[in-house]
Write a protein that binds this DNA or RNA. Structure first.
Length: 260
DNA sequence: AGGTATGTTAATTG
DNA sequence: GCAATTAACATACC
């Protein structure tokens, strides 16, 4: 479920496994996912080098090489990473990096909705993609300013990567649940109390789901995440959870805790 | 068999 | 220009 907490979990995973190891070879079965690059260019940029640092902006992961350039990964809806040795590489591997120590890092994406790119400059990449500020880096004043500069529905605003980067369908539901705001509410209907709760919930949900390694089974018991199913009892009040299409996506919310 | 899925983007309409 | 809606992308799963 690659939204910000998932990608942050991948970032930490790479940090704990694949840094400072010389890359022996690069194999690209999923060349369709390459953006403005080629398997040859990827090999030239990676082979013989090592990843030295990991960074993230919204749902994008940046692996910085020892010459300063970045491998950029986006995970679409089903992308993930796996660091392993020996066993055959996972099905649907789109990029396979083999290190000199014999381990491999696979970027796996069953539905090829992700993206693989190279960039010399992370800030420049973020600007080109017109991404808003990373949701976790956002201070309360910036948040208020951002909110005031747009209109429309609160859920689609949260999911719009141009406003703030990192939140998708699942976590927008969780944030709205924790803030006790109905997902159909408009931005302009939010009073200052609502906005403050929204900001707090945003920070709180992201931090806690990162702590849980984005695993629904490890998230606090008060979270909606493991109960995203029509009719499941709300973890706060027991009212059956409602499922509706909102902003083009399947939304889940508690009609009692999140009054319209 | 058909509907659904965590994301992004382009096209269209208001 | 902004916001909302829809389709498209490619594939697995129920």
């Amino acid at each position: 479920m690659p939204e910000l907490p998932d990608v942050e979990t991948y970032r930490r995973y790479v940090g704990a496994t694949a840094l400072h190891k010389v890359i022996r070879s690069t194999h690209v079965p999923g060349a369709e996912l390459l953006e403005d690059t080629s398997p040859q260019a990827l090999g030239r940029q990676l082979d013989g080098h090592a990843f030295e640092q990991t960074r993230r902006h919204g749902k994008y992961l940046f692996l910085q090489l020892d010459d300063g350039g970045f491998l950029v990964l986006h995970f679409g809806m089903t992308g993930r990473l796996r660091y392993f040795k020996d066993s055959p590489h996972p099905e649907h591997t789109q990029l396979l990096i083999t290190f000199a120590n014999g381990y491999r890092l696979a970027y796996v994406a069953p539905r090829k909705l992700g993206m693989i790119a190279l960039t010399a400059d992370m800030d420049d990449f973020v600007k080109r993609k017109e991404l808003g500020p990373d949701a976790l880096q956002l201070g309360p004043d910036d948040f208020r300013e951002l909110l005031e500069s747009s209109r429309g529905g609160v859920k689609s605003w949260l999911m719009n990567q141009h406003h703030l980067a990192g939140i998708g369908n699942v976590y927008s539901d969780e944030i709205l649940f924790q803030a006790r705001i109905h997902p159909r509410r408009s931005l302009k209907s939010l009073d200052s109390d609502d906005r403050q709760r929204l900001y707090r919930a945003l920070q709180d949900v992201l931090k806690k789901t990162i702590d849980a390694q984005a695993d629904p089974d490890r998230v606090p018991a008060s979270f909606l995440l493991p109960h995203r199913q029509e009719g499941e009892p709300c973890p706060r009040c027991g009212t059956p959870v409602r499922q509706e299409e909102i902003a083009g996506r399947t939304a889940y919310y508690c009609p009692r805790c999140q009054p319209q």
